[in-house]
Amino acid sequence: MMPLIEVRNLTFRYDGGSPALNGVNFRLNPRESVALLGPNGSGKTTFVLHLNGLLSGEGSVEVCGMKLERRNLALIRRKIGLVFQDSESQLFMPTVLEDVAFAPLNSGMERGGALERAMAALKTVEMEAAAARAPYHLSAGEKKRVAIAGILASGPEILALDEPTTFLDPPGQRALAELLADLPQAKIIVTHNIGFAQKLCTRAVFFQRGTIVAEGPVDEIVSRFGWDLALDRSKSRR
């Protein structure tokens, strides 16, 4: 079975800094959902930004069998949809509909078709009623849904979500988890929210100092690193 994403020995450093990624190897299989866990600053977001070429380091990245290169950047960016942590930065167009139609319009689709596609994506996330509104006035949960619609509109095969539960209250988090569980795409989810990861992901990888130090079922990784609020467990580990 061909993996959707195959990353080999990826290394990257920000200008003049110590390496932010240090020899990362990673693989994503079709229909799989993987949680990216690990401390702040361990390289999770930097890693995700490499998957569609927003950053590029040494090593190789393959998406849907294509090597990530300048010439197939546009194609790869359609295959993998990136949902940023702060929806406010992602929803940059004046109205919800224009924002969701941004990717289809950029891919050269004619206007009518692009708007139709955007409306369909909004329906998927149950936000079609907000089409004419300004993103600024939406709630955090609504913003996240619209941001996901903006990604779905380009018909991706992989969704990469960076801290999707930030700014969401528990019912909002639950609703988001239900929405994501219904989407057929393979997912990469960067999160500190263990409940969210357990609900959605079958597998977890653990980042530390720019590299993946462990992988396995979510529960196993969580208990191994004491990665939840149960303090006694982390104590017993020492």
Partner: peptide, 23 residues
């Protein structure tokens, strides 16, 4: 930083130097 993030979000959705405008 926010401007850079916005630019990243635009690129991630296929921005090619021209904002699509409504007809």
């Amino acid at each position: 930083g926010r401007a850079q993030e916005i630019h990243g979000a635009m690129l991630a959705r296929g921005y090619n130097g021209r904002l699509p405008t409504a007809a």
